[in-house]
Nucleic acid binder design. Structure first.
Lengths: 200, 200
DNA sequence: CTTTGATTCTATAGGGCTATAGAATCCTTG
DNA sequence: CAAGGATTCTATAGCCCTATAGAATCAAAG
């Protein structure tokens, strides 16, 4: 009973989440209509409220879904003992593939989460700033070990890396032909070495 | 007659543009109501249509206003014969102060222009991709001169620089305490030298 | 003071949207 | 098949929104 019913519901709930993500991503939260989300799911507008209490709750869930695995993956990267260069590559790789795999939800998380009320944003904010802090610590440790310049501002560097990831994520979402693996390598390479001639 | 009337109109039209920019920036295009824009201007909702043909046209004008000086300034930078490092700093400086000086309009340009119909986006797109091409050429020339690594992907580098500028611009808009001069220096420094120890 | 054009106001048509309530249908299980 | 819960549908209340039309007000010029 509970075995056969739950999976069916969960499956459709997931589909509802993805439909909401897709419509939010395309039209923005305010520009999206519950009718459009329902249509994408193949049900009528009113039926959507079987899965979501309200439009706003749908946004909350899409945002949480978007950041979920993206945020958790960095802990894995931080746990491994690897050279900084490898870790940084992994960070970009993870960031960019999150945009590929959950493109709509990630886009919604980055672009639409502002429209949530303070209370709803708090939990999301914790995940997001946890990500930033972990990344920052990753830089700091590499500086201590002498892998990176001693004068590096780690806070600045971490925010910039996230910014680059989001900027390319935005482009990835709109261009399927972009190769995330190549892109991640280019990003890591740029941040590591800069653009100046090594012997200059 | 034409001397005394036009200035009065132009002044208020500009104010209307800035009111629209502020409300679009805060609530997004779809989330913004013409009532809110009018209220900020101190007039009634219906009166707004004396200045704008439609809500969409207001968005177009705000976007154009946002990108206007930002896009034109890079031509000045490209025209001057200066070392690449100085130019890159100027690019970041110009990009970030555009977000400071026209914060709302710039934010609207970057976040909301997608909601314009194709036709309206074409002209804006020309300005935007002109900016990108100029920046790309700037990188390419520096590579030719041996100032930068020969293996640098200039297209990638230009897009990343723009991405960084927009990412920090987003943060600047929401945090007045950030110093754009310092930030521009940090950005330029990071891109030029990277994070790795010079003697590593 | 009167005229004339510029600017703003009031009022409203017409539409779309969210959320709810209750009926209908489906599907499983006994 | 019959019962009961799960899922979807129909219909609608109630709200806010954009855009327009025509009246009212203001301000400069004669």
């Amino acid at each position: 009973m509970a075995d056969s019913k739950q999976p069916r519901y969960d499956q459709k709930k997931r589909a509802a989440l993805e439909a909401a993500a897709a419509v939010f991503a395309e039209h923005g939260y305010h520009g999206a209509s519950t009718t459009a989300i329902a249509e994408r799911l193949g049900i009528k507008q009113g039926s959507l409220y079987y899965y979501f209490k309200s439009k706003q709750q749908a946004l909350e869930e899409v945002c949480a879904y978007g950041i979920e695995d993206y945020a958790s993956r960095i802990d894995g990267i931080a746990a491994m003992a690897l050279p900084f260069a490898v870790r940084l590559l992994a960070v970009f790789q993870s960031h960019l593939s999150a945009f590929r795999e959950r493109r709509d939800a990630m886009k919604v998380y980055t672009d639409e989460r502002l429209y949530l009320p303070e209370s709803a944003r708090t939990e999301l904010h914790a995940r997001g700033s946890g990500y930033r802090k972990t990344l920052e610590a990753l830089f700091a440790r590499a500086v201590e070990k002498g892998e990176l310049r001693a004068d590096l501002n780690c806070h600045f560097a971490a925010l910039t890396v996230i910014g680059i990831g989001n900027a390319w994520g935005d482009l990835i979402v709109r261009d399927d032909s972009l190769d995330t693996t190549v892109l991640a390598q280019q990003c890591a390479d740029l941040i590591l070495r800069g653009v100046v001639q090594a012997n200059a």
